[in-house]
């Protein structure tokens, strides 16, 4: 059903918290996502012309790099972009067939590939570009939050996290229940001032992004000159002479 589940207070909202301060832009999350999901819930993730001049294909996770700020205050921010598993996702409500749905039990937004007619309307309705059409299969695909890992009893417990989270070498990606205010991810969001992307759209994303930390001064304060060290007597005069000689 494309009707959204009634949001209950304290309901589980599984999602990601992405740290834009520590992300190094290595694309490992995107690659491991492709690797796992090529044989996962929404498999295959097809590519067209992968070795040709115009390669194209389905990815659930894409890493952008931005420059924020100008001049000496500018900084590079690496920015992974994937499905935010919104609380009011229009991608679900616009679906004419009921193929798109939001799970009541954990808030994950999924596509039933057997019911999808490939009309692409959901991808138009998503402001974030989370959905990508698989032209080979003729259906829409999207991030599943690795539903086939996080509940997978055959994996050791510490591996039951999304592929993008488990592979991140900088620990910039965190997975957990954002509906629980005491969960590790919720506390992280509260501590670091986690924010929503495009809040003005009103989709109420579950995933949060952590802002880059305030920068530390790049150049250390200049060393005191020997002449200013306050040394007196012969030693002071000698140092002052050395300073003058070297400053010439």
């Amino acid at each position: 059903m494309t009707s959204l589940p009634q949001p209950a207070k304290g309901a589980t909202k599984l999602g990601l918290v992405i740290d834009l301060d520590t992300c190094v832009g290595c694309h490992a999350c995107a690659v491991n996502c492709k690797e796992w999901n090529a044989s996962g819930h929404s498999a295959p993730m097809t590519d067209q012309d992968p070795y040709g001049s115009k390669p194209d294909g389905v990815w659930f996770n894409r890493v952008h790099s931005y420059e924020a700020g100008t001049g000496t205050q500018s900084r590079t921010v690496n920015f992974p972009r994937s499905c935010l598993h919104c609380e009011t996702p229009a991608c679900v409500t616009v679906c004419p067939t009921g193929a798109s749905y939001k799970r009541a039990e954990d808030g994950i937004v999924l596509v039933n590939a057997d019911a999808c007619i490939g009309c692409k309307l959901c991808s138009w309705a998503c402001p974030y570009g989370a959905r990508e059409y698989d032209s080979d299969a003729g259906v829409m695909k999207k991030c599943t939050l690795c539903i086939d890992r996080i509940y997978n009893q055959t994996l050791p417990e510490h591996e039951r996290t999304p592929a993008c989270v488990s592979t991140c070498p900088a620990s910039a990606r965190h997975f957990g229940d954002l509906g629980d205010p005491d969960s590790a991810v919720s506390r992280l969001v509260a501590e670091r001032g986690g924010f929503d992307l495009m809040p003005e759209m009103g989709y109420a994303p579950t995933n949060k992004y952590l802002p880059p930390r305030p920068r530390t001064e790049l150049s250390p304060p200049p060393l005191p000159r020997p002449a200013e060290t306050g040394a007196e007597g012969v030693a002071g005069r000698l140092l002052a002479w050395v300073d003058r000689a070297l400053s010439r």
Binding site: H64, S65, E67, A68, R75, F79, L197, P211, P212
Partner: peptide, 17 residues
């Protein structure tokens, strides 16, 4: 607003994915 980085100043894309 799309990146949430407006607090740092003007944002421009450096690299496409």
């Amino acid at each position: 607003s799309a990146t949430g980085l407006g607090g740092l100043g003007k944002v421009r894309m450096l690299e496409s994915p």
